[in-house]
Amino acid sequence: MEVNCDTIKHLAKLSNFSLSDAEIKSLGGDLNSIIGYISQLDELDVENIEPTYQVFEMENVWRADEILPQDATREQLLALTKEEKDNQIKVPKVL
């Protein structure tokens, strides 16, 4: 299948990229060749095959409901953000 310009723009939105027209063009080309390649899975018959999401034999892995010290403090974490105010992360207004 062929992805057109609108699909590329939609994917860019989903990915949160502001792409230049040039980028849309080049990425669009790349995406089409990639999708062309992965579409060869169509040949494969997966009738009645269960999917595998994890190659891992374990199940029911969980922890006790106990408060424990963490690997970083609030101060260490907030120090990583560009703008902080009143112990909160400052972001531009949501339009």
Binding site: I67, Q70, A72, R74, L77, L78, N87, Q88
Partner: peptide
């Protein structure tokens, strides 16, 4: 009504606590 959050061992009851005082590196999504 759990003591800790769903995916980290920090206090699940933030009532009356300071902003971001119940946040682990997991919740902060490092």
């Amino acid at each position: 009504a759990t003591k800790t959050k769903l995916f980290s061992e920090v206090d699940n009851d933030a009532r009356g606590k300071e902003p971001n005082s119940c946040v682990s590196p997991v919740d902060y999504a490092l």
